[in-house]
């Protein structure tokens, strides 16, 4: 069925009108969600996820308490209506657990857990709609939610998928493309250039891998810019709100470029 749709046509357009290295539209909503300490709703094209962060708060289970750092829990739930075919996935579904584990291991080295001993940080991710790049969306949303919760991170984590069609590589795949191509999800830390995650579910030749890997790292920078802009906007809004209530004169605004919580570069 998918063979009827051309993945990359002669004019260099993908099936949704993008070119090889064009990423899908990214929309970020960082408004407060209920009791969460930080939350982010993020969409890459038609893929939409919501991440909420609670914590750091006192660890509930003794077995999961570390005297020198915080524990991170990741729970993922995929809405049954998120894919075309309605399908209920339980929380213990293998694929769901796998994704949660990948997200957890991505953030463990990035979150400065040593600042909060004997606590836990809970990350809840709700998948609302899927059209490829699920892991990428989850990771990016988590980064934003953590930042909103004011949890110190060593760096942003920006994830993106990359695949190869015949010999042409392309970025940010849709479900249609993911079904047809070998692809990788790469999560990078843009300022240090370090990679915290690279997963593959299909075979990919090592030469191609290298190429995609490099591309994905570059794409990480682009996504980083977008995420940073979203955070800045929110900070500005918060700041304005704070100023209008406590400092009516408005002369203490200070440097707008200075992010008040943490310098994420």
């Amino acid at each position: 069925m998918s063979s009827r749709v051309e993945i990359l046509n002669e004019g260099g357009y993908r099936s949704d009108g993008r070119k090889q290295y064009e990423l899908r539209d990214m929309a970020v909503d960082l408004s407060q969600q209920g009791a969460a300490d930080g939350s982010a709703t993020l969409s890459h094209g038609l893929t939409q996820v919501q991440a909420s962060v609670f914590g750091p708060r006192e660890a509930k289970l003794r077995s999961q308490t570390f005297y020198d750092r915080a524990t991170i829990n990741v729970e993922l739930s995929i809405a049954s209506f998120s894919t075309g075919e309605r399908r209920k996935r339980s929380r213990n579904d293998k694929r769901t657990l796998e994704l949660a584990a990948a997200i957890k291991s991505t953030f463990e080295p990035v979150v400065q857990t040593n600042l909060y001993p004997r606590t836990q940080i809970d990350i809840y991710i709700q998948v609302i709609q899927q059209d490829g790049g699920l892991l990428q969306a989850c990771i990016n949303a988590t980064t934003l939610a953590l930042a909103c919760a004011g949890i110190p991170l060593l760096d942003f984590v920006c994830a993106v998928t990359g695949g190869v069609h015949s010999t042409s590589s392309m970025l940010d795949l849709t479900t249609l493309e993911e079904n047809d191509l070998p692809y990788v999800t790469v999560a990078t830390m843009p300022s240090s250039g370090k990679v915290t995650l690279a997963t593959m579910e299909t075979r990919l030749h090592v030469d191609r891998f290298e190429e995609i890997f490099r591309l994905a790292c570059d794409a990480g920078q682009v996504i980083h810019k977008e995420m940073r802009a979203a955070l800045r906007t929110r900070t500005a809004v918060l700041l304005a709100a704070v100023q209008s209530t406590t400092v009516p004169s408005g002369d203490a605004g200070g440097d707008k470029d200075d992010e008040p919580m943490y310098e994420y570069r």
Partner: peptide, 16 residues
């Protein structure tokens, strides 16, 4: 689908 299930497909396109 080939198995007879009805699925919903959502696609988008980018106009340029």
């Amino acid at each position: 689908t080939a198995k007879g299930k009805v699925i919903k497909v959502l696609r988008e396109r980018y106009l340029r």
